[in-house]
Design a protein around this nucleic acid. Structure first.
Lengths: 130, 130
DNA sequence: CGTGTAAGGAATTCTGACACG
DNA sequence: CGTGTAAGGAATTCTGACACG
């Protein structure tokens, strides 16, 4: 598929799909026309990248993460060996995401609870509402 | 307790505790000296407010949410009756929080998975590590 | 001993303002 | 709008010392 279709199916702006490619996170083939050509599997990949980017991961961390993912588990080594710095960076990102999820989940349920009560009193006052 | 202790126990900057009060979200008593005096219950309240603020809720929405919370369920009306606008605003916030939680959770588990593999290969290459 | 007090400094808190993205 | 910071002052608390009965 071409970029427009991928954008539509993933809800990711075309601008961002091109940006991901610029950062090496997505590598579509090219038609003679120069049009990008994506595989079905790129839908999943683009979705993952988009999620990570929106979650605040710098693209330079997303790249090694993707490489790791594409490795055959049976393969030995082509990994970022013993990269202590990388491990530390990812550990920090994980901690950040974890606490952010907790904060948002907590807020989400507080808002949900409020919403329920708000609607309850609304109904009580507007019994004729459709 | 005074503002310093509350700040320490909630991990919320003093600056923010003062700001919450300015917005009517926290209403500590005052000592003759002018020092703020907080109750134990303010710990929970401050934590809730902080979470909501960090989650991106505007303080003007947090205020009615708190009021609602403090209402006795048996009481009748003193609520924001039939406030369609409020309901819509909260519904929008809820939707936003919900999708944000999903995005972050997804990213979180992707990073966690990567971290595991990263550590696994690190160990394989550094069997003597402590 | 238990208790009050003056002394000087350190830590805490106050407000109103400016800065930033 | 939420948050940080520098400024200048006021209230609070701390410690070690001296005094008293």
């Amino acid at each position: 598929m071409r970029i427009g279709e991928l954008s539509r199916r993933t809800q990711i702006p075309i601008r961002m799909l091109r940006y991901y490619e610029e950062r090496g996170l997505l590598t579509p083939q090219r038609a003679p026309s120069g049009y990008r050509h994506y595989q079905e599997a790129d839908i999943e990949q683009a979705t993952l990248v988009s999620s990570l980017v929106r979650s605040g991961l710098p693209t330079r961390l997303i790249l090694p993460l993707l490489r790791d993912r594409q490795l055959n588990p049976m393969d030995g080594d082509e990994t970022d060996d013993g990269d202590d710095d990388l491990v530390a960076l990812f550990a920090a990102e994980f901690a950040r995401l974890d606490s952010q999820v907790k904060c948002l989940s907590f807020s989400r349920s507080a808002v949900q609870q409020h919403l329920r009560r708000l609607r309850a009193t609304r109904v009580r006052h507007t019994p004729t509402g459709t």
